[in-house]
Write a protein that binds this DNA or RNA. Structure first.
Lengths: 178, 178, 178, 178
DNA sequence: GATGAATGAGACTTCATTCAT
DNA sequence: GATGAATGAAGTCTCATTCAT
């Protein structure tokens, strides 16, 4: 009776919302900013999402599903790698090239510390990489690797050139047992 | 010629701002929220700080100076420790007991990824612990330890009970060479 | 797709803004005053006009278009006049009966001296009458007539009874060659 | 018992206020702007003047007394002139070189149209020049000359280069019988 | 006398949300 | 279904004014 809403437009809005989150942070997302970025009518941002919170949450969720695709790719690369630390470092550098996505990840991590509703999402995010790594390393090593990768990414995002310290990351991943 | 009538006023506001950051995130800090939390007139928040950005930045800066005090304490503990991983884990758990401060730290980290003006502050924050650790370990180990501690803290903040996985952290710190 | 629910709303606001300008001057126009005078919600004034400057400029522009109508009427009167000075004086007296419009004209003139963006508007205002007069007189006489009319109007606005010195104006217009 | 307030500082404030009026208009004068421009403590602007209105009025009054000095100079020049239109035009051009004062004059003129309290001031302003001119011309010619001068000045203030149309003014002054 | 600390009022503006179309 | 018109609430900020010093 109610035909499905245009899924194309919905994801256009979500993509725009992800960008706004990366640029301004979750706390500064507004319907207007998202509509402008998505180039859609203002009304459609409230039409597709009950309220702003839902929109932000949906955007973070959308980011997670993109991330899942990324990790699928990582899995394949790791399977054929004969030097896990180097491969992981390379993949991290590639991932960082999309600065917006990387920042969004951290936005989610911190927002989840404040808001319980976001925690499952943040945990799922972490879990993606964790599952990929535990196929090659112990739980402790896997968790440590995730922390090291995140730490290195954050430091890279603080640099104007966005360059990640590959030497450090490779060494640290090795040290941690990978 | 006119001394401040309440010399505490400025730091009262900053403390309130730090709380608001922890509760709502840097992007949701408002004059009203800060004034209400600090129990001062709304006008005070704009009188003491030129604009909201300055207020937020000052609050983060204030948090950093508190953090510096904490690290001073850590230094002393580390000097007399005969088991660095355990000691660091214990100190981290203690630190986490002030949830607001811990969240503020991560808020700063992510905000700095977006806003270049905050980067010096974020780097200084990281630098505090780094300097303490390099007195006991190599640069790579020290950086890795920081990343591991941050990762463990974030995970703890995602738990409703706020419990940090001490076993993991101690093991990981050991693995990384501490 | 959504037509305005009240097509008059915009011009209601502009009319109110013109009144506020006349009563308080361009520098004292506020959204609140305009909204109250127009009897519309405060939000309307910002919805229809991007900011206060735009509102004031639009109001002055609106006043200009009313003025254009007035001058059209003057043109017709002048065409059939056999005594231009007397006719112009009479028309000026009539014009002055709408005190608000007259004051708005001078507000525009002075504001244009300060703000370059308003100068085209002020020049257009002057141009209206100039074009009407040059059909009957030399450029110098036409400009002089405008200055004399303005001078006489200003003096009238300084009188509590608002009476214009018709004798002076007629004589001066004659002297200047009309 | 109450020693006279520092007259130097008072006039410093007034001079600053005149500048602020010229730059922003009477409606946008604030204590802070004046204090900053005058380089005096904020408190002194309220100390020397009961409230903002008084300050603005006093500033306009101060401008008038400067204007009186100017007209004294004009009187002397006119006495020895053998070509009144040319001389007046030259003096007008000189006067215009202080753009701030010229604008302030018009601010006063328009403000007086709105506010009865300012009318005596505006009339006095006009009267200064009128008295100087009636020593050389009829009342009608004198008033007309004032209107022409004002009109030419306003037009000059609307030009980016601030150039007055000297040819027009001289011709018009001649036409009007000077 | 003179100053600047302090604040409540109110200015501008943005925006989530509702709703008529 | 889909949109943008509309607005009340709330946000940022400025400021006249008061007053302790």
């Amino acid at each position: 009776m109610s035909p499905p809403r245009d899924p194309q437009r919905r994801s256009t809005i979500l993509a725009a919302a992800r960008q706004v989150i990366a640029e301004h942070g979750t706390g500064r997302v507004t319907h207007r900013r998202v509509a402008a970025k998505a180039n859609v009518p203002l009304g459609s941002t409230t039409y597709y999402f009950k309220d702003l919170d839902q929109l932000v949450t949906a955007a973070l969720d959308d980011a997670l599903s993109h991330y899942t695709d990324t990790i699928r790719h990582w899995r394949e690369e790791l399977l054929t790698s004969d030097d896990l630390p180097s491969t992981l470092t390379r993949l991290t550098v590639e991932y960082l090239s999309d600065r917006a996505t990387a920042i969004t990840e951290f936005e989610l991590c911190v927002a989840a510390a404040r808001e319980p509703e976001l925690r499952p999402l943040a945990k799922a995010w972490n879990s993606e990489l964790y599952q990929a790594l535990t196929q090659h390393a112990s739980p402790t090593t896997s968790r440590a690797a995730i922390d090291l990768i995140n730490g290195a990414m954050l430091a890279a995002l603080w640099e104007d050139d966005g360059e990640l310290d590959q030497r450090y990351l490779t060494d640290a991943l090795t040290a941690v047992g990978l």
